[in-house]
Amino acid sequence: MAVRVGDRLLGPLFDTVAQVSGRTPVIVHTSADAELALRSAHHDLVVLDPDIASIDILPDDPEARPAIVVWISARSSARVAQLLEAGADDAIDPSMAPVELAARLRRPLRGRFVAVARQPAVLGALRVDAGLREAAWHETVLPLTPREMEVLQVLVAAGGRPVSREAIYRQVWRWAMPRGDRTVDVNVKRLRGKLAVAGVPVEVVTQPGVGYRLTIGTADQAVTGL
């Protein structure tokens, strides 16, 4: 997120972004940092305040950048049209209720999560390419179902950071997770069992109130927090 620190709506916006993306948003305060965020492969969504970072810094290639939603203080058709023409995915403003904010932030993320999930992910000696239906620890192929493989790929891609159930569900099943749904838990349980049977020193740790994260045991050089 690149928005003004003093913005009175920052809190609700921050919460909505966290809820929609399933991750903890990062706030940057300068144009240079915003530009870095826009070019980073680690961000799925950037909420941009044009008062901090000019819309001109948007990368040309839409495939090589995160989803970009511009936060404008006052809405006008001309302003929104200008931003959309410049490459923004959408424009949001303080007049919008949280439910509309969430819907608008979610919309450009849909296709992106598909793209993220299709990229192979590596953590230590663990490599997952759900697109090719391949998961391996060193040279040992792991007998996972496509769903388990996709869940593992999301966790591997997070590099040891916790990922919420909702975010896993959205990336693997491409829909919002209904409250109370146990699909992710069931797949994680099976994944744990298969990793243990295969002797892989990778553990799917439950982070209470957050979700799941991966840790790799000392048998491999990798550790948590990668």
């Binding site: 819907a103 979610r106 099943w173 829909w175 919002a176 997770m177 209904p178 409250r179 109370g180």
Partner: peptide, 20 residues
Amino acid sequence: DAVAALFEDDDISPRAIIQW
């Protein structure tokens, strides 16, 4: 509460809504 949970988010799969 269960039915409300199916309609809390516009992005919940229609298939899941019908099933549950």
